[in-house]
Simulated scan of single mutants.
Amino acid sequence: MIQRDQDDLITASQMRAARALLGFSQEELASRSGVSIPTLKRCESDGENVPIVSSRTRAKICAALQTAGIEFIPENGGGLGVRLSRSSTRK
C-alpha cells in the first residue's frame, strides 16, 4: 500500500492514467473510492499538479486504484507514473 505521506505526491495526471489503464469511468472510480463524482472530476482536472483536496480524499482514490491493481511509480529520474501490478487482475 502507498504510505500516507506519499499520497501528497500523487498527481492528477497519475490518477487519470491509472483510471485509463483499468478502463474505469469516472463514475466507476467514484463509486469504488467512495468519493463524489464532482470531487473526482475536480481532482482529475488539476493538470500535472497534486489535486487540491484533502489527503484523506486522495488516499481513498489511491486505495481504490491500488486495490484494482495499480502501482504508483515515484519520481526516480524517469518521472512519475503508474503501471499495472504484475499480479493484477482487473476487479
Rank of each mutant, 00 (worst) to 15 (best):
S36H: 07
S87I: 13
L65N: 04
S25C: 05
A12R: 05
I52W: 11
I2F: 07
P51L: 04
V53L: 11
I2R: 01
I73V: 15
K41P: 00
V50L: 00
L80D: 02
G23K: 10
T11D: 07
N76I: 12
R90K: 14
I2A: 04
R4W: 10
F24S: 01
A30K: 02
E75Y: 03
A68M: 10
E28W: 04
A12S: 15
E44R: 07
G34S: 04
S25H: 06
V35E: 02
T67A: 14
L40I: 12
N76V: 10
A18F: 03
F24V: 06
P51I: 07
T39M: 13
K91Q: 08
A64F: 01
E44W: 04
P51C: 05
S54N: 08
L80S: 07
R4A: 11
A30S: 14
R19M: 04
T67E: 12
A63G: 08
I37V: 15
C43G: 04
G23M: 07
G34P: 07
S31D: 13
R16D: 00
L40E: 05
M15L: 15
A63C: 05
A68R: 01
D46L: 11
R32T: 01
A18V: 07
G34T: 01
S55C: 10
I2S: 08
